[in-house]
Design a protein around this nucleic acid. Structure first.
Length: 878
RNA sequence: GCGAGGAUGGCGGAACCGGUAGACGCGCCGGACUUAGGAUCCGGUGGGGUAACCCGUGCGGGUUCAAGUCCCGCUCCUCGCACCA
């Protein structure tokens, strides 16, 4: 008997599939329509490990499944090739970013092919190619035309490590998303923005219809941060000027006893009285210098200074002091608030600290609030001390106060969003040049469409690429010195490049028509494929890439380029791949585990000492090292820096692609983390080897037996095998539709066990031959090489052409079923009865069971609950 | 603090609409066969008990003939957000 040898078969079938072009996508619907299966494209990094491959394996399984099911499938791949990784590598290795990028692409492609992952490579997209990025520039110009791209001066986030500005979405807890240890600085700069806020409402509303994880939708909702309230004008005393505030509680207007401006607010310094100037200026300066981190570190203790100016509460006519304080954020609402200490805890703390009056204007129903108030009362209630509104329920009061303000021209209903416009300028080399020209005479002028692309100059000297705090292109007059497209006078190109998230915001549309030279894509082709039916990727893009892409799709929809308004109908966020990792030596004394400094630092924990129990609870182990000491081992995310990645090339050469695929898919549900282990690999090997042996042992007889039989005529083990076969088919089909790969494989393992059991009692029969046939069809998406190999022993053509077996619902019916018999809700035995046997039959059978008899003895049955095919519960008394 | 999700054997994890908890795999225990292979095959494996039986899905209540599943109240864990007016 031939032995299972992955190396002997895998390259063969990989070549075969490639030659046949099974995954080439055409704009012609299949029998069941189309499916667009997409995995987030990677930035090109060199040698790939299994952590990188989980995504693509899942996508490949789904794409193959949809293909054999009868869909026309688009399963493309490309490279998010612009951006910092390439630049940083260039600076580190002295390579040109382009060379580094293309070498990595070559290596990554090789790894993907080794794993048997198939794409329509004719549609490969590489974002650093002019063919691609010229359409970035085209889209940018369209946005400019529509007023959605604009240049503005503002306080921006600057990463000193990246030497560039960042978008709000790229700042995590005040730090650069790429440099967790680097607080971002604030700088006042003129930059390019995209008006994503114009789409805030649609971005929020349309989340509703998406088949996305609730977690991701919640994150987007929170990021957009819709808030309903009112804008209210507070006239400044003695000046023809008003401060506009945003509030969600107009019902508390009568309780506004002071105002607070953000330190950055333009009115802050203007309103300051001469005698207060020094103090206020010092406060504003200090606030500007502080990073978000420093502000956080100082806790929530309120600080602020009085401007020496007053405003008029439009409701009460009272004179109220104006302060500045850094608890009011310039970036939200209007950057100014009315202080209502009675009903906002932050204002309460501020008022208490600075001795400002606290007034109750909402009364708690039922139990009146203590006076003076001990804390702000933020719940709804009844308006008091509010003139004409006294007695009004606060919710109703919100509307009434707004109406009252609107009549007098003092305010209006207003919806505010937390979402900010997207800052897309970057002061880096490796990106898309912004297609704009600055002319002394004409101002900002767009590059005419027909002159696109604005090519990124090929800087040969690595030193020219190095970030310098301004765009490297600013040192290259041959790039920026041009004539104005409008007046022909001397002008200067914009030297900034685009955020790489611009590139990835529409690449899925380019896949639908990747070689188009007149448009980013043909709307007809995009409409054929869009939306992406299943998008697979990491949750780290929940608000970055996924929000930007939704914005782009809506914009392109409005432009008439594509019918859909949402790009990704289904989203799946996969869990990471971990591996057992050596974190270094420890010293054990009794129950105490001491962590030497290097070990502690690698683990990123505070404690210098742990108990054995704590080590266990962390999911960690102490393992003997070769030098006789004990080392601290724990599963950790595979990464180059930890050196714990199982590399694709060596693994496939040693073990095989199908084994890798099964290991990844079976170890855990795909949304969970999985730990890659040697035992898991062993299990995958055993499973595939058992399949191989089952088929190989029967090879000769399978070749001589026909697969024809009458399903209705089957009996005994034949009938049972037939039932199990179709039950498995149903399960595997449903699980694949829902991306439950682990349970689908478990079902295939069960069926395999059933095939072994069957052959112990029966020869090779037509129903068995059919079971083998279906088995290989079902195995194909998961372990395609072994499936294709075994298939070809008996059938010509490819499993790609064999389709997906058809379910026989009748096969699922069991004639006789096992029913559990309970007495007072506890299982006391089981009976074998016809599926739809009446209660009398079930009861008669149940009474024959000894153990049931024992539990009925001396007692009276007061009730029988019978669910045919499931359970018989006898309720007894006595 | 707010939001989302979770807690089931030694481990990863199953369990449709409330109906035999622990599928499948790993690990472990015992055995067979040894053409020593990455072996393979057979049996066992939630806990306690000689057994009958009892207990068991984070904790405490409840609904129900019947609860991992539904309801109420907690604890803990993971993730996200967090002075957002």
């Amino acid at each position: 008997m031939e032995k299972y040898n992955p190396h002997a078969i895998e390259p063969k079938w990989q070549r075969f599939w490639k030659e046949k072009g099974f995954m080439k996508a055409k704009e012609v619907p299949g029998r069941k329509g189309k499916q667009y299966v997409l995995v987030m494209f990677p930035y090109p990094s060199g040698d790939l490990h299994m952590g990188h491959l989980k995504n693509y394996t899942m996508g490949d399984v789904l794409a193959r499944f949809r293909r054999v099911q009868g869909y026309e499938v688009l399963h493309p791949m490309g490279w998010d090739a612009f951006g910092l990784p390439a630049e940083n590598a260039a600076l580190k290795f002295g390579l040109h970013p382009r060379d580094w990028t293309y070498e990595n692409i070559r290596q990554a492609k090789e790894s993907l092919e080794l794993m048997g992952i198939l794409y329509d490579w004719d549609r490969e997209v590489t974002t650093c190619e002019p063919d691609y990025y010229r359409w970035n520039q085209w889209i940018f110009l369209k946005m400019w035309e529509k007023g959605l791209a604009y240049r503005a001066k503002g306080l921006v986030n600057w990463c000193p490590k990246c030497q560039t500005v960042l978008a709000n979405e790229q700042v995590v807890e005040g730090r650069c998303w790429r440099h967790e240890d680097t607080p971002v600085e604030k700088r006042e700069l003129v930059q390019w923005y995209l008006r994503i806020t114009a789409y805030a409402e649609r971005l929020l509303e349309d989340l509703e219809g998406l088949d996305w994880p609730e977690k991701v939708k919640a994150m987007q909702r929170a990021w957009i941060g819709r808030s309903e309230g009112a804008e209210i004008e507070f006239p400044v005393e003695g000046l023809n000027e008003a401060i506009t505030v945003f509030t969600t509680r107009p019902d508390t207007l009568f309780g506004a006893t002071f105002m607070v401006l953000a330190p950055e607010h333009p009115l802050t310094l203007r309103l300051t009285s001469p005698e207060r100037r020094a103090e206020v200026e010092a406060y504003v300066e200090a606030a500007k210098r502080k990073t978000e981190i420093e502000r956080q570190a100082e806790g929530r203790e309120k600080t602020g200074v009085f401007l020496g100016a007053y405003a008029i509460n439009p409701a009460t006519g009272e004179k109220i002091p104006i302060w500045t304080a850094d608890y009011v954020l310039f970036g939200y609402g209007t950057g100014a608030i009315m202080g209502v200490p009675g009903h906002d805890q932050r204002d309460f703390e501020f008022a208490q600290k600075f001795g400002l009056p606290i007034r109750k204007v909402i009364e708690r129903p039922g139990e009146p609030l203590p006076e003076p108030l001990e804390a702000a009362y933020e719940e709804p209630g009844i308006m008091v001390n509010s003139g004409p509104f006294d007695g009004t329920p606060s919710e109703e009061g919100k509307r009434k106060v707004v109406a009252w303000l609107e009549e007098r021209g003092l305010g209006r209903a207003k919806v505010t969003y937390r979402l900010r416009d997207w800052l897309i300028s970057r002061q880096r080399y490796w990106g898309t040049p912004i297609p704009m020209v600055h002319c002394e005479a004409c101002g900002v002028v767009p590059v005419p469409e027909e002159e696109l692309p604005v090519l990124l100059p090929d800087l040969k000297d690595i030193e020219d690429i190095r970030p310098k705090g301004k765009s490297p292109l600013e040192a290259h007059p041959e790039f920026y010195e041009i004539t104005c497209p409008k007046c022909g006078g001397p002008a200067r190109r914009d030297t900034d490049t685009m955020d790489t998230f611009f590139d990835s915001s529409w690449y899925y549309l380019r896949y639908t028509d990747p070689r188009n030279e007149t448009l980013p894509f043909d709307p007809k082709k995009a409409d054929f494929w869009m939306p992406v039916d299943q998008y697979i990727g990491g949750v780290e893009h929940a608000v970055l890439h996924l929000l930007y892409s939704r914005f782009f799709t809506k914009f392109l929809h409005d432009l008439g380029m594509v019918k859909v308004e949402e790009p990704f109908q289904g989203l799946f966020t996969q869990g990471m791949v971990l591996a057992w990792t050596d974190f270094g030596p420890v010293e054990v004394e009794g129950d105490r585990v001491r962590l030497p400094e290097p070990t502690r630092i690698r683990l990123e924990i505070q404690e210098r000492e742990l108990s054995l129990e704590e080590v266990r609870k962390m999911g960690a182990e102490l393992r003997p090292h070769e030098d006789g000491t004990l080392h601290f081992w724990k599963p950790a995310v595979m990464s180059k820096s930890k050196g714990n990645g199982v590399m694709v090339g060596p693994f496939v050469k040693e073990e095989g692609a199908d084994i890798a695929r099964i290991t990844i898919l079976f170890a855990a549900p795909p949304e969970n983390e999985m730990v890659w282990t040697e035992e898991g690999v062993q299990g995958a090997w055993r499973f595939l080897n058992r399949i191989w042996r089952r088929v190989a042992e029967d090879k000769e007889t399978l070749l001589s037996v026909s697969g024809k039989f009458q399903a209705e005529a089957l009996e005994g083990p034949d009938r049972e095998l037939y039932r199990k076969l179709h039950a498995t088919l149903k399960k595997v089909t449903e699980d694949l539709e829902a991306l439950r790969f682990n349970t689908a494989i478990a079902a295939l393992m069960e069926l395999l066990n059933a095939l072994y059991d069957y052959r112990k009692v029966r020869p090779v029969t037509p129903v068995y031959r059919t079971a083998i046939r279906y088995y290989l069809q079902m195995l194909f998406p998961f372990a395609p090489h072994i499936a294709e190999e075994l298939w070809h022993w008996f059938w010509p053509d490819s499993l790609f052409e064999a389709g997906w077996p058809e379910l026989d619902e009748n096969a699922l019916e069991r004639g006789v079923v096992e029913v559990a018999v309970q007495v007072n809700g506890r299982v006391r035995g089981t009976i074998q009865i016809p599926k739809d046997a009446p209660l009398e039959v079930a009861l008669a059978e149940a009474l024959k069971v000894k153990n049931v008899q024992a539990h009925l003895e001396g007692k009276a049955i007061v009730r029988e609950i019978y669910v045919p095919g499931k359970i018989l519960n006898l309720v007894v008394r006595g």
